Simulated assay, not measured.
Amino acid sequence: MEKLQFYDVAMRPPANKNNTAVNPWKTRLALNFKQTPYKTTWVQLPDIPDVRKSLSIPACRKFADGTDFHTLPILVDPATGRKLGDSFDIAVYLQKQYPTSGGNLFPAQTLDYVFKPESELLIPLSECDDSEYPQYASFNVNVDAAFTAHVILMAHRMPFDPATEEASKAEFVRRAGVSSWDDFAVGGEVRENIIASFERMLGGLAKLFTASEGPFIGETACYADFIVGAWLVMASRTLPEGEWEAVKGWHGGVFGRLFDALAVYAGDE
């Protein structure tokens, strides 16, 4: 089988030790779970729009002002010629195209988790309309919304590549509509309040995991676990160590056990 081509976001070298982008992590976990051979192409943040355009893959999301949001992952399958530029679409493709390889990404199960953000999110989320796996698609949107509402806790410690750090920070500032990168730094009582909100939010999500014997939502790992796991990887690499250890221990250690259990699917190709 010719290797799939997987495009991930390059951060501080070594890239495979500092990659933090959530949606590419969903795809990496799914690729490893499906046991589909692949090769990673690391793309610098400022180069993502040009890479998507060079592959004739349009932006899959837009900002509130209507401008394109060019992001990764991208997956190219040389065996079929398919090019996909959305993490959920990639997971669906892997399950349909390689159904007998690895495990089942979308086993039937109830994923009744809903999160309603109190304010507009800065980053547009994937759509969940017309999906073949509507429960998983809705779960993806709600989990992304829940973590994105608290991502300010992680943003300021993103491990940017020094070669493109200033350009990358400038793009994040532009997207958020803030005046400078330092606006992403939160501390003191403000940070404590956001952490408390983060813990409460994860309490609702933890109920899905504690309904089974764990560490997964169901009996075995599935794409829903990878959706949450991808955010945990980002948290593990961007939160201060003490805060990450606290997250791992919240709600009886549910998310610490999930993070540890998914390590088997977290390797590079």
Rank of each mutant, 00 (worst) to 15 (best):
D8T: 05
R12W: 12
N23E: 11
N23V: 02
W25P: 00
K34G: 05
Q35D: 15
P37Q: 03
L45S: 06
P46M: 06
P49W: 03
V51F: 03
S54Q: 10
L55E: 06
S56V: 11
S56R: 09
A59E: 04
D65F: 05
H70R: 00
L75Y: 10
L75C: 06
V76G: 02
A79G: 08
G81V: 12
G81F: 13
G81P: 09
K83M: 13
L84E: 12
K96R: 11
T100D: 15
L105V: 06
L105N: 04
P107V: 02
P117G: 05
S119N: 09
D129Y: 11
S131R: 07
N140P: 00
I152G: 01
L153C: 08
M154N: 05
M158W: 14
A163H: 03
S179L: 13
S180K: 15
F184H: 01
E192C: 00
N193E: 14
I195R: 08
M201H: 02
G203S: 08
L205P: 03
A206R: 04
L208W: 12
T220A: 15
F226C: 04
I227T: 12
I227N: 04
M234T: 05
L239Y: 05
L239R: 00
V247Q: 01
G249K: 12
H251E: 06
F259W: 13
L262C: 07
